[in-house]
Design a protein around this nucleic acid. Structure first.
Lengths: 161, 161
DNA sequence: CACTATTCCTAGTGGGTAAGTAGAGAATAA
DNA sequence: TTATTCTCTACTTACCCACTAGGAATAGTG
């Protein structure tokens, strides 16, 4: 259950573009400027933005006044969208989708657990847009989760490795 | 958001042991028998069971009548417990815990999203025990998630890579 | 005791992939 | 024409997952 560097960088780059979009939807932002302000390796960032462009979330322009911008309103781009583009399915078991795994004997219903975590992730990630993150205002699902008393505390005791 | 082979195998092995525990709590199960019935590579399984023993979830005995068994009732072992032992924290961002990452500028509140998915995962995985999976009877949290109309269907459209 | 069956420990190996790099090429505008 | 920026292909590096090998330790059996 790791968020990869690619997704982390991608999210931050998109948030940077989203902020610029809200100031001027047509304005272009240079890769170099994203890279510097968010401390992301330039060439790696370029690769990520190209993937996001292929997926239709980003528009780019080359040349002296070139740069990148969002293809649509930040409200219309969810975290789930971006993770799926950059990392594939939200939840997978040994490379397979949860509904495709099959277990024998006592493990038969284990599949339900994997399907459950997929739904749980969807509920959170499909409901949060770039605009939500910029504003720091989240919908009910995420707000409720963040209100958990120990949301910001790690579980103790198992770092004994 | 991948469930690793290690966790998948580990869960299945533990479910096998749990079933045996419910028949006879003191009965020992041989690694070979788990390996064969669940199609898990023997030596890999041994390594996994050793980790689980170090964490206190499994008890083993060597020798001719040796084998493995659970150290406690299957109701007292959650999926979250096992994932933490075998794979580390439920949610991590580039190897760091969600509460430890820090973002600048427009990405500042991105941290909330990662914390949110950690809570979401906890809510599901800490509430499901080995006994629950054997019985196929889950608590309210997971049951609600599984009742989602499209729980068993993958999201279309983004396999265009 | 010998013998067998099992887990335990140390130490690998191979392949894949994540993360990042390099550099030439193509578009754009002044 | 030239400077600037993105685009594409290829490459590298290093790590880690999944899995394997082989012997040592342990426990029961006759």
């Amino acid at each position: 259950m790791q968020v990869s560097a690619k997704v982390d960088y991608g999210m931050r780059a998109m948030l940077f573009l989203a902020e610029s979009y809200q100031a001027d939807p047509a304005g272009l932002v240079k890769g170099d400027s994203i890279s510097k302000s968010q401390s992301i390796p330039v060439k790696f960032l370029e690769a990520i933005l190209t993937e996001l462009r292929h997926a239709g979330f980003v528009i780019s322009q080359r040349g002296a006044v070139g740069g990148y911008r969002l293809s649509r309103n930040p409200e219309k781009i969810s975290v789930a969208d971006l993770i799926r583009v950059l990392d594939g399915p939200l939840a997978a078991v040994r490379g397979q989708r949860p509904e495709n795994v099959h277990y024998e004997g006592p493990a038969e219903r284990l599949q339900d657990v994997w399907v459950g975590i997929r739904v749980a992730l969807r509920n959170v990630l499909e409901g949060v847009s770039l605009a939500d993150i910029l504003a720091g205002q989240f919908g009910e699902t995420l707000s409720t989760l963040l209100a958990a008393p120990d949301a910001w505390v790690s579980r103790p005791g198992y770092e004994s490795n």
